[in-house]
């Protein structure tokens, strides 16, 4: 059963075509672009908030993007259980929009980091991880300046208790260590989902690891989970 994917384009998005390519060409799914200034989700089954520098990252990353008409539509879509996946800048936008708790702060070392990292699958209870194995390690690239996930202690406890941390930075062997944490994120958090489990935000880029030509293919495992999530219902 095919799903229709919508990839939002903000002024400054730059991973929109990569995400579109992954769903359209790699997974052979219907896909379309969604313009930031429209509030029409075109009947999409899943919305991708892609990486990049929406509105130039002015003010704060994601701070201006959250006020765009498309995000108002995404908020409504998500509140009725619609699937939303925010990657990198998309994660930042979802946090600013209040669809996910917390915030992505400047990397602890104050540097832009672009490299492959290892993430451990912490929960398979989501449309984005249902076909993965808990504890398995994926190699996926990151490329960000603000990936240092932060939330207050009460929120962190809630995320842990509700099993909403889907990915954590780990060693290649799957151990959670401070050294494996590239950006200072609290509790090595690389990706979390909403309370309804239908909204995912993650800093690593699965779409950049979705074909052998790109040098890495572990991202396929995550995108595949989303593509086949229709069978869960």
């Amino acid at each position: 059963m095919a799903m229709k994917f919508g990839v939002i384009i903000f002024p400054g998005s730059n991973c929109d075509h990569d995400a579109y390519w992954a769903f359209k060409e790699v997974f052979q799914q219907p896909a379309t672009f969604l313009w930031h200034d429209s509030s029409d989700l075109q009947g999409c089954d899943a919305v991708i908030v892609p990486g990049g520098f929406a509105y130039g990252d002015y003010l704060r990353t994601g701070a201006i993007a959250r006020f765009s008409p498309i995000m108002e539509a995404v908020r409504k879509f998500a509140s009725t259980g619609g699937l939303v996946m925010g990657i990198c800048n998309g994660f930042q936008i979802l946090c600013e929009s209040g669809l996910l708790p917390g915030v992505l702060m400047r990397n602890k070392n104050l540097k832009y980091i672009c490299k492959p990292v290892h993430i451990r699958v912490e929960s398979t209870d989501s449309p984005f991880t249902h076909s993965l194995r808990r504890g398995e390690v994926l190699e996926v690239p990151i490329g960000h300046m603000e990936g240092n996930y932060y939330c207050d202690e009460a929120t962190l406890q809630q995320l842990q208790k509700q099993d909403r941390i889907l990915f954590r930075y780990s060693t290649p062997e799957g151990t959670i260590t401070p050294e494996a944490n590239p950006n200072g994120a609290i509790d090595n958090i690389a990706g979390i989902c909403s309370e309804g489990r239908n909204v995912l935000g993650m800093m690593p880029h699965p779409e950049r690891a979705s074909e052998t030509a790109l040098g890495m293919t572990d991202g396929v495992r995550i995108l595949q989970a989303l593509v086949t999530s229709g069978t869960l219902k």
Binding site: L59, R60, C95, V103, M105, D152
Partner: peptide, 8 residues
């Protein structure tokens, strides 16, 4: 509502 992120 705009200039600050109340989380931080």
């Amino acid at each position: 509502e705009v200039l600050t992120n109340p989380v931080i």
